[in-house]
């Protein structure tokens, strides 16, 4: 489903990702943990081409992008778009469109990118808003919602493109603690539905509960990975032990 081979990314002389390899099955939920600046967000953003990797190959479903190869521009852009259509993204700061209603936010992708009819898009949109528990807010503007509600709308907006993979970039970090649970609940239900997911998060409890596999990132490399009970209870790596003792005593 997802195959990443030797992914390399640098900012100027600073190498952020040192040749990441990763494989993921359909329906698998993977959680990325690690200290800030370890490259986990960059890895996620490379997957849907918000950051362009310097080298390596990314495959999602049937679409493969090889970085750093001179390609004909138009074809490269088309590949990039195809990849993005298969990967839905949820951001730390929601990034809803403030000038559109909640429903228009959710239907904007299908209508603009897939040229879906207004009725079809709205039927789909209302269904997804129901799924995230916000069917009564469809005519509201994002500015009128709480942070937790906004993030649920953002999840519905990403789902509206019917992606094969959902990417979450610290989806609860910008939220007050009492608002986090409503977002995590929606994410749990997605896991139950069998959605293929990669989640960057600091919510260790959530990782322990729902992840099929946990990846520990350190200094641009995957230092350790395995089922959550193994990584959390019996970490093999010195750096993993240090990180876990820091976050769990907090």
């Amino acid at each position: 489903m997802i195959v990443v081979e030797n992914l390399v990314k640098s900012y100027q002389s600073n190498r952020v990702l040192h040749g990441i390899d990763h494989m993921q099955q359909r329906g698998e939920a993977v959680v990325l943990i690690g200290p800030s600046g370890c490259g986990k967000s960059t890895f996620l953003r490379c997957l849907n081409q918000l950051e362009l990797p310097d080298a390596g190959r990314i495959t999602i479903g049937e679409v493969t992008i090889t970085a750093g190869q001179p390609a004909r521009i138009a074809e490269e852009k088309d590949q990039q778009r195809q990849l993005r259509l298969r990967a839905g993204m949820v951001f730390q700061s929601f990034n809803l469109f403030p000038h559109l209603t909640v429903l228009d936010n959710v239907t904007s992708g299908p209508r603009i990118v897939k040229a879906m009819s207004k009725e079809d898009a709205e039927t789909l949109g209302r269904e997804l808003l129901g799924k995230v528990g916000l069917d009564n807010k469809s005519e509201a503007y994002p500015g009128q919602l709480s942070g937790g509600q906004q993030q649920r709308v953002a999840i519905a907006r990403a789902l509206a493109m019917q992606p094969e993979v959902m990417l979450f970039d610290e989806p609860t970090s910008a939220l007050d603690p009492e608002l986090r649970e409503e977002v995590l609940k929606v994410m749990r239900s997605l896991v139950e539905d069998g959605m293929t997911m990669i989640v960057v998060t600091h919510e260790m409890q959530f990782a322990r509960e729902v992840a099929d596999r946990v990846l520990f990132f350190d200094a641009g490399r995957i230092a350790e990975q395995g089922p959550p009970e193994q990584v959390f209870s019996n970490p093999q790596h010195q750096r993993t032990r240090e990180f876990l003792s820091r976050v769990t005593t907090r």
Partner: peptide, 19 residues
């Protein structure tokens, strides 16, 4: 973040600008 959100939905540059 507005541009990134639009790109993540698959909008091209003109669609991002226009909508």
């Amino acid at each position: 973040g507005q541009t990134e959100a639009a790109q993540a939905l698959g909008m091209n540059r003109w669609q991002t600008l226009r909508h």
